[in-house]
C-alpha cells in the first residue's frame, strides 16, 4: 500500500465540466473506433443509400435540372448528421444508463454538462469525418459537382453544426424522458418516418402538403433544405415551398429545437434507471 492513498489535507476544486468534456470526447472517440459495427454503420450507411438511390433513379433529372445524385446528396448529408447525432447519442445514453455506467458517473460527481460535452465532441468529430467521406465519394464515384463558392460552404458548415448540435441535444432529451428499451426502438422507427416525411428519399416539393407541414415541425426537413441550398443551383429555390431557401427560418427552427432540447435535458436527465 502506497502513501499516496492518504487523503490530502487540502483539496483543490475538481476539474471543470469543460475539462471533463474534453477528456470524455477523447474517450468516446476511442470507444467509437473500437466498435466496428458502429463505425461501418455511421460511415457506410449514407454512402450505401446514395449508391442505391442514385442507381435506381439514374438518368432522371430533378428540379433545377441537376442529376439525381446531386439532388439526393443534400438529403443524405442531412440524414447522416441525424444518424451520427440524434440516433447515435439517444441509443448510446439509453444503453449506458441500462448498464449502470451513468450511475457510476454520478457517484463520481461527473457534471452532467461535462458528460453532454463529451457526447457533443464525439458527434462533431464523427459527423465531420462522415461528411468528408460522403462528399469525396459523391464527387469521385457519382460525378457530383461540389460547390466552389465560399458562401455555400459557410452555409454547409452552419447547417451541419446546427443540425449536429440539435441532434445531440435532442438525443439526450429523448433518452432522458424515455425508458431504455423504448428509446432504442423508438428512435430508429421515428428516424425512418421522419426521413420519408422530410424529403430525404424523394423530392420534397412532390410530397403531399400535409406531409410537408408535419415535416416542417422537425429539424430534419430544414437541414435537408439547407443542404439543398448548398448543392443545388439557386434556380432550384423556385420549387421550394416558400420559393426561397429560407435560411433565416432554418436557423430559427434549429435554434428553437436546441433550446427545447436543453430545457428537457436540464429537467429530465437521469443517471439511473428508476427515478
Amino acid at each position: 500500500m502506497t502513501a499516496v492513498l492518504t487523503p490530502p489535507r487540502t483539496r483543490p476544486a475538481p476539474p471543470s465540466a469543460a475539462a471533463i468534456g474534453l477528456a470524455r470526447t477523447g474517450m468516446e472517440l476511442r470507444l467509437f473506433v473500437r466498435d466496428p459495427a458502429q463505425v461501418v454503420f455511421s460511415f457506410a450507411y449514407p454512402i450505401v443509400m446514395l449508391l442505391i438511390f442514385a442507381s435506381v433513379f439514374e438518368g432522371e433529372d430533378r428540379p433545377g435540372g441537376v442529376p439525381f445524385a446531386q439532388y439526393f446528396l443534400a438529403g443524405i448529408a442531412a440524414t447522416g448528421i441525424m444518424l451520427t447525432s440524434f440516433q447515435a447519442v439517444g441509443t448510446a445514453i439509453a444503453e449506458e444508463r441500462d448498464r449502470g455506467d451513468l450511475a457510476r458517473l454520478q457517484t463520481l460527481g461527473t457534471p452532467a454538462l461535462g458528460y453532454f460535452l463529451g457526447k457533443a465532441g464525439q458527434v462533431l468529430v464523427t459527423t465531420v469525418l462522415q461528411l468528408a467521406l460522403l462528399l469525396t465519394v459523391a464527387a469521385t464515384a457519382f460525378d457530383v459537382s461540389l460547390p466552389t463558392e465560399p458562401g455555400r460552404w459557410l452555409t454547409f458548415a452552419w447547417v451541419a453544426v446546427g443540425g449536429a448540435v440539435a441532434g445531440t441535444v435532442l438525443g439526450i432529451a429523448v433518452a432522458s424522458v424515455g425508458s431504455s428499451r423504448s428509446v432504442g426502438n423508438g428512435i430508429s422507427a421515428f428516424a425512418v418516418v421522419l426521413q420519408f416525411f422530410s424529403g430525404v428519399f424523394f423530392v420534397f416539393s412532390e410530397l403531399p402538403p400535409w406531409m410537408q407541414e408535419v415535416a416542417a415541425v422537425f429539424p430534419l426537413k430544414w437541414m435537408v433544405q439547407g443542404m439543398r441550398s448548398v448543392f443545388l443551383p439557386d434556380s432550384a429555390a423556385a420549387v421550394e415551398p416558400a420559393g426561397s431557401w429560407e435560411h433565416g427560418t432554418t436557423a430559427l427552427v434549429l435554434a428553437a429545437w436546441v433550446i427545447i432540447g436543453l430545457v428537457v435535458c436540464a429537467r429530465a436527465f437521469r443517471w439511473r434507471r428508476t427515478a
Partner: peptide, 27 residues
C-alpha cells in the same frame, strides 16, 4: 461501483487514466 462506467473496450490503464481526469488529486 458495479461497473467501470466507461465501457469494456478500454484497457485497464486507459480506464484509470481517463477517470484520473475527474479528480482534484488523483492517485
Amino acid at each position: 461501483g458495479q461497473t467501470t462506467g466507461a465501457g469494456n473496450a478500454l484497457t485497464v490503464r486507459e480506464t484509470l487514466d481517463h477517470f484520473a481526469r475527474y479528480h482534484a488529486t488523483p492517485v
